[in-house]
Simulated scan of single mutants.
Amino acid sequence: MQRLPDTSMTVALASGGREFLGWGVDRHMAADLFDALNANTRATGNWGKGKAPKIPQYPRPKAKSTTTASTTPKKPVSVAEIYARLSRR
Rank of each mutant, 00 (worst) to 15 (best):
M1Q: 07
M1Y: 12
M1G: 15
M1I: 06
L4F: 07
P5D: 08
D6K: 00
T7P: 01
S8V: 03
A12Q: 04
A12D: 03
G17T: 05
R18T: 08
R18V: 13
F20L: 01
L21N: 00
L21E: 03
L21T: 02
G22T: 07
G24F: 02
G24D: 02
V25C: 06
D26S: 10
M29C: 13
A30Y: 03
A31I: 04
D32G: 10
D32E: 14
D32K: 07
D35Y: 06
D35W: 02
D35F: 00
A36D: 11
L37T: 07
L37C: 15
N38I: 02
N40W: 14
T41D: 11
A43D: 11
A43V: 03
A43P: 01
G45D: 05
N46I: 07
N46W: 03
G48V: 01
K49N: 12
G50D: 13
K51Y: 05
K51M: 06
A52I: 04
A52L: 09
P53F: 05
K54Q: 14
Q57S: 15
Y58C: 13
P59I: 05
P59A: 06
R60Q: 06
K62N: 11
A63D: 04
A63F: 06
K64M: 12
T67A: 15
P73W: 01
P73G: 01
K74I: 09
K74R: 12
P76L: 08
V77R: 14
S78N: 05
V79C: 10
A80H: 09
A80P: 00
A80K: 15
E81C: 07
I82P: 01
I82A: 15
Y83V: 15
A84K: 13
A84Y: 04
A84H: 10
L86P: 00
L86M: 12
L86Q: 12
R89E: 11
